[in-house]
Design a protein around this nucleic acid. Structure first.
Length: 494
RNA sequence: GGUUCCGUGGCCGAGCGGCUAGGCAGUGGUCUGCAAAACCAUCUACAGCGGUUCGAAUCCGCUCGGAACCUCCA
């Protein structure tokens, strides 16, 4: 493993639109902020891809030896449903419709989110702050932005003055949008707006009488604008300047653009060094979206209980499927692709299992572990190129199989480091998990081994009828026997 | 309409000027009592048309097709 000083990690910085050498502000400490979910309904698989992507990023940075403070928020207020003026807070609305406390909604879906993340083997962030837990800080930031002259109050609401900000700063640095085009492209200039410009966005909204979620502020009883919470919480926990900010591609504009404006307006400098954007998971060629019903819930995926799938898939298989594509590329979800991924995943895991019981050969090795390790790091250092890493893992699998068939060999010390490196990349970095062979506990394993023993005897007696019967009946149960040179192994179809 | 991006073999997906990943599926072998697994070998590509270059899937232009964002979204 390369040392922190020697490792050269390149990150595709969305802000610069090019790969840049990653140099943390305060190495070995790294600050990572990722936009979390709005907890007003179940997370779908598209949401999960983003979080799994940044889980991988967090894992790799940690693996390299960085001390990462990983902050991912829970949006539990302030997320308006539509245009800022008429919009209702999503959580507030859901609570009103179901006659529940907003915090009941928040609790339900936060727990659901955590449950799904755990199934995907995502490591919880170091800090998971909520918007409602940081109202005071948000009010403070609004005051600061106002003091700097980049926001104005009208009727108890406070708006960020985009045009004023743009006079000395660049509103559009991230998204590549030009303010003039934004103005001309704005629809619904129906004169209802109290904002000075349609581009301005709310950082504090006065609550309408029906709005349940409200807090006292110098301007009104109201609630914070959605974009504000991320600026506030990232600043609070990671400082006015920090290393990496991640999120889905769809958040680039306006959310991230507004975050940049807020931070810069309040603190006079850009907060984020490297912006990373995960691309969309599509279904039938279009982005997953609750609004259109084009979604897949993790639960449907695990159980196969949906007409979009022919069977259920283990969370690790789905994770592996996602890792086979680069995080920056759009990925289309399909049953066929999942089945192919599952087979590949199983092959990789079986090779890893084989490696555990591999014997070292004497003399030299037929495979340069050191070179191979270098290639693995090179792939990950090139903007977290997990598909390339996986291709190297399959190369390793091929070699393991060859050793198991005694066509190749590996000397003692190489074998030891091979095991360590492969384990690190499969489990620590990619975050995959072995699908438990013996779901019914160890007893199933023992029973299968017993049957394998009986079959071996039958084969020795040339009792093919019996040996095939054992094999076929196990096969019908989804237990596949695999005859190798050193006896019989088995795998269980999920 | 504007902004960002993409079109790779039967399918999924890397590569982003020369060395033409990987997985799944296919084909031919080896092994095996047979089969599966495993191993070895192997066939299908770079949307179209121009241009730059000694050389392009990779750069430039145009055409066609698709996506995300410009309302909420991971």
């Amino acid at each position: 493993m390369p040392s922190l000083e020697n490792n050269k990690l390149y990150i595709n910085n969305s802000l610069k639109r090019e790969k840049e050498l990653f140099v943390p502000l305060h190495s070995p400490n790294v600050g990572l902020y990722v936009c979390g979910p709005t907890v007003y309904s179940d997370v779908h698989l598209g949401n999960c891809r983003s979080f799994i992507t940044f889980d991988m990023v967090y894992r790799y940075l940690s693996h390299l030896g960085y001390k990462v403070r990983y902050v991912r928020n829970i949006t539990d207020a302030g997320h308006l449903e539509n245009d800022a003026d008429e919009g209702e807070d999503k959580i507030s609305k859901k609570a009103r419709l179901n006659d529940l406390e907003p915090m009941e909604i928040v609790q339900t879906y936060t727990l659901g989110f955590h449950d799904v993340m755990a199934k995907f083997n995502a490591i919880p962030p170091s800090i998971e702050p909520t918007a409602t837990g940081h109202i005071v800080e948000q009010i403070n930031m609004i005051e600061k932005i106002m003091e700097e002259g980049f926001a104005y109050e009208i009727n108890g609401s406070v708006y960020f003055d985009v045009e004023k900000y743009n006079a000395n700063h660049n509103y559009g640095v991230l998204s590549g949008r030009k303010i003039e085009e934004l103005i001309s492209g704005t629809r619904a200039l129906d004169g209802q707006s109290e904002k000075r410009s349609p581009l301005d966005f709310a950082i504090w909204k006065k609550a309408s009488p029906s709005h349940i979620m409200r807090w006292k502020s110098p301007w009104s009883n109201g609630f914070p604008g959605w974009h504000l919470e991320c600026s506030v919480m990232s600043t609070k926990y990671l400082g006015e300047q920090f290393d990496i900010h991640g999120g889905g591609m769809d958040l680039k504009f306006p959310h991230h653009e507004c975050e940049i404006a807020q931070n810069t307006a309040a603190n006079g400098k850009e907060a984020v060094q490297y912006w990373m954007h995960g691309n969309m998971l599509t279904l039938n060629g279009a982005k997953m979206s609750k609004a259109t019903g084009n979604t897949l819930l993790p639960e449907e995926l695990f159980t196969g209980n949906t007409d979009k799938l022919t069977k259920g898939f283990a969370p690790s298989v789905v994770r592996f499927f996602m890792m086979q594509a680069h995080y920056g590329s759009q990925l289309d979800f399909s049953n066929d692709a999942l089945i192919a991924a599952e087979k590949g995943f199983n092959r990789l895991m079986e090779a890893y299992e084989k490696l555990k019981s591999l014997n070292a050969g004497d003399g030299s090795s037929d495979f340069s572990i050191k070179d191979w390790e270098g290639r693995c790091y090179k792939a990950m250092n090139d903007d977290f190129n997990t598909p390339i890493l996986i291709s190297h893992l399959f190369e390793a699998a091929k070699f393991i199989n060859s050793c198991a068939d005694q066509n190749s060999r590996l000397k003692e010390e190489d074998l030891a480091s091979f095991k360590l490196i492969l384990k690190a990349f499969i489990f620590d970095v990619l975050g995959l998990e072995e699908i438990n062979k013996s779901e019914g506990g160890n007893k199933l394993d023992e029973v299968v081994k017993m049957l394998i023993g009986m079959r071996a005897q039958a084969r020795a007696d040339k009792n093919w009828a019996l040996s095939d019967q054992i094999r076929d009946q196990l096969s019908n149960l989804g237990i596949l026997l695999k005859d190798g040179k050193d006896g019989t192994d088995y795998s269980i179809d999920s």
